[in-house]
């Protein structure tokens, strides 16, 4: 004999509670917050290096760089002029969770920031389940990957607000169609804002910087 006890509980309720606390703190301090996700090697760190170099004179940027092993990404971001960079080494875990972020956030001091960027672990599956208190997720894809990636990882593209297509300088060398990737991505999420750029040549970066400036301005005035 058994009895059934009803229970309406979100499995990630603990994570979501911590993420809400992070979001409250960042909103109170008028800090725009982005969670960067992609496959390994799409160019998250490269784009963040460029962003730091271009914008650090006009806004205060804090970043956490998540990696399964090594602090290499955080070191690169510090070399690019980042002053408020903290590594999170997950020691095997395939994603960041809100607990890891809330542990390092006090060291970054969000009261003195305009923009907070979380570089997630390179993985298009697992990080999609974890809210980290960001305003929005930015998903990167590079032209050396397949243009069907949005269809293969729908959860991530559905939960992201922005898609950055990186390495467009290599379009001629790859069987990757910009038209196809955009069609696939918009099928999953019609509201996606899309950027096409190359961190290597600098093409398309100005539009990205302009959008970030508007985002920060909007948050400040909110």
């Amino acid at each position: 004999m058994t009895t059934t006890i009803k229970l309406e509980k979100k499995v990630l309720s603990e994570n979501d509670k911590l993420a809400a606390e992070i979001r409250d703190e960042l909103t109170k301090n008028k800090v725009a917050a982005l969670n960067f996700v992609s496959s390994p090697g799409s160019g998250k760190t490269s784009l963040l290096e460029k962003t730091l170099q271009a914008l650090r004179s006009e806004m205060k940027i804090g970043m956490v760089a998540g990696d399964v092993q090594t602090e290499n990404d955080a070191k690169r971001l510090i070399s690019a002029g980042g002053e408020k960079i903290k590594p999170i080494v997950t020691g095997g875990s395939c994603h960041l969770d809100a607990k890891m972020v809330s542990k390092v956030l006090p060291e970054i001091d969000s009261s003195d920031l305009d923009l907070f960027i979380i570089e997630n672990v390179g993985n298009l599956v697992c990080p999609s389940s974890y809210d980290l208190g960001e305003d929005m997720k930015v998903v990167l894809i590079s032209v050396t990957e397949g243009d069907d990636k949005p269809l293969k990882y729908p959860s991530m593209f559905r939960r992201s607000s922005v898609m950055v297509i990186n390495k467009i300088d290599m379009l001629e060398l790859c069987d990757f169609s910009l038209e196809t990737v955009k069609k696939n991505a918009l099928q999953i999420n019609g509201d996606l804002k899309i950027f096409e750029l190359s961190c290597r040549t600098g093409e398309g970066l100005e539009e990205w910087y302009d959008w970030l400036k508007e985002l920060v301005k909007g948050k400040r005035e909110a």
Binding site: M1, T2, T3, T4, K6, L7, L12, G190
Partner: peptide, 22 residues
């Protein structure tokens, strides 16, 4: 054909019940 849609279900990750031995 609008792409402005609100998700009604499909994103759940919930514990809904426990079955306990009497």
């Amino acid at each position: 054909q609008s792409t402005s849609i609100k998700m009604e279900q499909g994103e759940e990750l919930d514990i809904t019940y426990m079955e306990i031995a009497e």
